[in-house]
Amino acid sequence: MAEQKAPQKWGLVVDLDRCTGCNACIAACSMENNIPFVGEDEVAYGRGLYWLYNKREWRGEYPEIKPAFEPVMCQQCGNAPCEPVCPVFASVHSEEEQINLAVYNRCVGTRYCANNCPYHARQFNYFDYELPEPMNSYLNPDVTVRRRGVMEKCTFCVQRIVRGRQKAAAEGREVEDGEIQPACVQACPAGALVFGDVSNPESKASQMARNQRRYQLLEELGTLPRVTYLKGGGRYGG
């Protein structure tokens, strides 16, 4: 009997020494995942739906003040605090992709998962947002258009992961390192985001995750995040 191959463990590495805070990752994520633009008034109420936000702070004293940026998305926890509190099992861990997923047709909008997420990486959809003609033709057919009353979150663009894995299987080969890229990784002009199989010691993401500058957000909570940050020290360092 052939030995069963262990599932890939997808992870993201963010090099804060490269991030310039341009927010191209946020724009790409919104377009790829059909995230609606809720408008200025709803954002003022704290109802923005971005799956990724860029934390910014200023360091130093004037006139030597410098910006520091830190993109934050769902950390894809291996021990996710959002999963055990969901009463309808809408927040689940994928065995194939080894990431935390949201099953939208199960979600009843209790928001327990958001309350239990220490990274504030989940958003609640308060309204139905419909794009008028012809803008609705720009929607990504590979991603569900969410309805009112459900929680939304980053999935590492799971539709791209599935597509890449299926393509490799059809060609009778393994997924190559760097072949699959979420929208944020593909759009980053500075190469600050690197995505790959962190269980493979030869992958670029795995090698970067072992850098001495590495850290993870709220690592002391034991959530086992799959996102690793590299502390910056340059002009834009975090």
Rank of each mutant, 00 (worst) to 15 (best):
A6T: 14
Q8W: 07
K9F: 04
W10V: 00
G11H: 08
L12P: 03
L12S: 01
V13Q: 11
D17C: 11
I26P: 01
A28P: 09
A28V: 12
E32S: 01
V38S: 06
G39I: 02
G39H: 01
D41H: 13
V43T: 13
R47H: 14
R47K: 14
G48D: 06
G48S: 06
Y53Q: 15
K55H: 15
R56C: 14
P63K: 10
P63V: 10
P63C: 10
I65S: 07
K66Y: 11
P67L: 05
F69K: 04
E70Q: 15
V72H: 14
C82Y: 04
P84R: 12
P87V: 08
H93E: 01
E97K: 13
I99A: 01
L101R: 05
Y104V: 09
R106D: 05
C107W: 00
T110Y: 00
C113R: 03
C117Y: 02
P118Y: 01
Y119L: 08
H120Y: 14
Q123P: 01
Y126W: 13
D128M: 10
Y129E: 09
E130V: 05
L131P: 03
L131S: 08
P132A: 10
N136A: 14
Y138E: 13
V143L: 07
R146K: 08
R147V: 02
G149P: 06
V150L: 06
V150G: 03
T155R: 07
T155V: 07
T155Q: 08
R163W: 07
R163Q: 09
G164H: 02
A168R: 05
A168L: 03
A169F: 11
E171G: 04
E176F: 06
D177I: 00
E179Y: 03
E179W: 03
P182R: 10
P182Q: 06
A183I: 11
V185Y: 04
C188K: 12
P189H: 09
A190Q: 15
G196M: 00
V198Q: 00
S199D: 15
E202H: 03
A205N: 01
Q207G: 00
R213L: 00
Y215C: 04
Q216H: 01
P225Y: 07
R226L: 12
K231Y: 12
G234L: 12
G237F: 02
G238Y: 11
G238E: 15
